[in-house]
Design a protein around this nucleic acid. Structure first.
Lengths: 110, 110
DNA sequence: TGCAGATACAACTACATGGTCATTTGATTG
DNA sequence: CAATCAAATGACCATGTAGTTGTATCTGCA
């Protein structure tokens, strides 16, 4: 956030965070970590319904988190950039820190 | 995302992304970047209503993004860890990349 | 104790969105 | 062209939540 950060820019950033703020979409990204996959492949991998997966993929693709490519009658989706996982890793680290902090705070009151 | 990533863990990560997926909350974090501030200070800084700011701060505090401390009759909120801004920076970078990619794709079809 | 400012909270409305179902579009093959 | 499989789309419902309004709680002070 080094730049001016206009409301419009802020909304764009928020939108991207919101896209990652859904367990189903995180599962899809996680599934794609092993490599590109078709929709049906992702359906079986995640246990979600086809329509549901398709919708989430539209969002992920619309925000540029995944790429889309036709392969015959299939459509292959793939991680656009490994940076997504950096975000997830930072989140996980913060999560751990937060848990530790809570535990410490709890211990202090005991 | 190096760990097992159970559904419960995934939900926790998603929750944190969702908290950052709101322009109002990003504005609050941005305002806190200059240092700790009371609720009223944040109200004037952001132009949001008091109740609204209070609610958002509850969420940010509940997820550990900000700390809370009473100072007399005021309550001072502060950034819990600068890591939040790392997340925002990565998002901004991805945003730029995505824009560039779109521009390139557009140019290719021209 | 009573008042005033600061913050939190509850109830409510409006809107966005996740999930499902049914249908449609697109591509392959016979 | 007909049949079939893959993927996308539209309609719909249910839920979550941002924002507002009004009120309650808490603190400091006269």
């Amino acid at each position: 956030m080094a730049r001016p950060m206009t409301p419009a820019l802020l909304e764009l950033v928020a939108e991207r965070f919101r896209v990652l703020g859904e367990p189903a979409r995180l599962r899809l990204l996680q599934a794609l970590r092993d490599g590109p996959a078709s929709v049906t492949r992702l359906v079986t991998a995640t246990g979600l319904t086809q329509a549901n997966v398709s919708k989430h993929l539209q969002l992920l693709h619309g925000t540029g988190f995944v790429t889309r490519e036709r392969r015959g009658s299939f459509v292959e989706y793939a991680i656009a950039s490994p940076d997504v996982f950096v975000l997830c890793d930072v989140m996980c680290a913060q999560l751990d820190d937060d848990v530790a902090r809570r535990r410490a705070a709890l211990a202090a009151t005991r």
